Computed example of a mutant assay.
Amino acid sequence: MRSALVFAGAATAEIAGCFAFWAWMRLGKPVWWLVPGIASLMLFAWLLTLAESTAAGRAFAAYGGVYIAASLVWLWAVEGFRPDRYDLAGAAICLVGAGVILWAPRSA
């Protein structure tokens, strides 16, 4: 459960940070948008270290599924584009994959 919360926070921070760069370069926002964007990306990196995993690569792989789903929430909530059924199906598949990676029983 803790990892799910960590991943949700990390996804929000990463998407917000990346969006700051997107807004500056593609939407004509002022360069100062990069200041909170960089801080948000630093928060993302720190949060990801809190994931309950013995291996960074496994944590990063599982996080990827959460990132995809969170990106679609951002698409809808911030950008105003409603995800279609293919977006939702793809995100569901990714979340199942993230769960398998993160919570599969493993031997030492």
Rank of each mutant, 00 (worst) to 15 (best):
R82K: 12
W76Y: 10
A98M: 03
A62N: 06
R106C: 01
S71T: 11
A61G: 12
W22I: 05
R85L: 11
L47I: 07
L102E: 14
L95Y: 10
G64Q: 05
V73L: 07
C18M: 12
G90M: 04
L75I: 05
V73S: 04
R106W: 10
A89I: 15
W74T: 10
A10E: 00
I93F: 06
A23R: 08
R58M: 12
L43C: 15
S107Y: 11
C94Y: 03
A59R: 01
A23G: 07
K29A: 12
V100R: 03
T49F: 00
F60W: 12
L102N: 14
S40H: 05
F21A: 15
M1K: 11
W74F: 15
V96Q: 03
Y67N: 13
L34Q: 07
F81P: 04
P36H: 01
W103D: 11
F44R: 07
S71A: 14
C18F: 06
T54Y: 05
F19E: 08
M1A: 13
L50F: 05
V6K: 00
V6S: 00
S71F: 02
P105T: 07
C94F: 10
F21I: 14
G97S: 08
Y63R: 02
M1N: 10
I101P: 14
A39G: 11
A45E: 08
L102C: 09
M25E: 12
R85N: 06
G28D: 01
R26E: 06
G97Y: 05
W103T: 08
W74Y: 10
V6A: 00
W33A: 15
W22Y: 14
P36L: 02
A51M: 00
L27Y: 14
W24G: 00
R82A: 14
V66L: 10
S3I: 02
G99I: 09
I101N: 08
A8N: 01
V73H: 00
D84E: 01
L102I: 12
P30F: 06
A11M: 02
A8Y: 03
G65D: 11
G17Y: 06
W103C: 05
G9S: 01
F7W: 06
R85W: 09
G28H: 00
A20N: 03
G90L: 09
V66T: 07
L50V: 11
L5H: 08
T54V: 11
I38Q: 05
A91H: 07
C94N: 06
G80P: 03
A20W: 02
E52V: 12
L75V: 13
C94E: 05
C94A: 15
G99K: 00
I68R: 01
F21V: 13
D84Q: 01
A51F: 01
A92G: 13
R85C: 05
A104F: 10
F60L: 15
A56T: 14
I93M: 11
F81N: 13
R26Y: 12
T49K: 07
F60D: 09
W76H: 09
I68D: 04
E14I: 08
G80F: 00
W22L: 02
F60H: 13
A62C: 14
A98F: 14
E52D: 14
L102D: 10
M42T: 08
G90K: 08
R82M: 10
V73M: 04
S53D: 12
A56F: 15
W46I: 15
A55H: 11
E14R: 01
A61N: 09
T49S: 12
L75M: 15
A91T: 13
A56E: 08
G80T: 02
P105E: 08
R106Q: 15
V35C: 03
G17F: 03
G65N: 08
P30T: 10
